[in-house]
Amino acid sequence: MDLLADQLWPDLDGDRALHTLRTTIYRLRKLIGTDAIVLEDDHVRLDTQHVATDLGRLWTALAHMRNTQLTETERLDAFDQALRLYRGPLLPGVALENVAEERSRLASVLLNEALAFLLTLDPTGPAAALRAHRLRTLAPGVTLPDALNRLWPA
């Protein structure tokens, strides 16, 4: 918890940062329920059985997007939801190594899954063009595969 407190409140000394973290956890538990926040082995996490997160919804949308058992419309909806939920890099101001790794992994998975899904669509259809354009706004420096290049000019 010390590391988390230092990352969240770098301007406070160690004891004040830790006190602020404990106070914040106490208040959050009052707001969203005691079981929603788990403290174990000096780690803090949300219990997904008691609280939903945008990150959890994003991973679910990505899973639906690649699920070929769903209809194309359902997969398009999942694509749209994934792009709505992804609002840029995860916790951009947090320098913790595991957060930085998850930030990078999430961005990579989102882009790769979205591109793979776009390749399953008719590249001449408006659904592919619209989604390719929306994806470009999230990753302007990415070059699409040749099959989609004309939908996403450099």
Rank of each mutant, 00 (worst) to 15 (best):
G93P: 00
S104W: 10
L96D: 12
A139Q: 05
L106E: 10
L96N: 06
L151Y: 04
P145M: 11
P123E: 03
D41T: 00
P126W: 02
T73E: 15
H43S: 13
E102P: 00
Y86G: 08
A52L: 09
A114N: 04
P140A: 11
N98W: 11
N98Y: 12
H64G: 06
D146Y: 01
D54K: 09
A116P: 02
A139E: 06
A107M: 09
V51A: 13
L83N: 08
T124L: 11
W59N: 14
L83P: 05
T48S: 00
G93N: 12
M65R: 12
Q69C: 06
A116G: 15
L151I: 06
A52N: 08
L118R: 01
E97A: 08
H64W: 08
R45M: 12
R103I: 04
N112S: 14
V109M: 07
L83S: 07
V142W: 11
N67S: 14
L58G: 01
S104Q: 15
A82Q: 02
R84D: 15
H43Y: 09
L115D: 01
G56K: 02
L121D: 09
A147L: 13
P126T: 10
L144P: 00
E97P: 02
V94S: 12
E40F: 05
P126K: 05
L148V: 08
F79A: 14
R66Q: 15
G56C: 03
A127P: 06
P140M: 11
N67T: 13
S108T: 15
T68W: 00
T71H: 00
Q49V: 02
T137D: 07
L151C: 04
A52M: 06
L118S: 02
F79I: 09
A52T: 14
L135P: 03
D41M: 00
R150K: 08
E40S: 13
E101D: 12
L55K: 09
Q81S: 14
A114W: 02
D146E: 10
S108M: 09
Q81I: 11
L91H: 14
A127I: 03
M65A: 07
N112G: 12
L115N: 03
D54L: 03
T124G: 13
D77G: 13
L151D: 05
N98C: 10
D41S: 05
L115Q: 13
L55A: 07
E40I: 06
L85S: 09
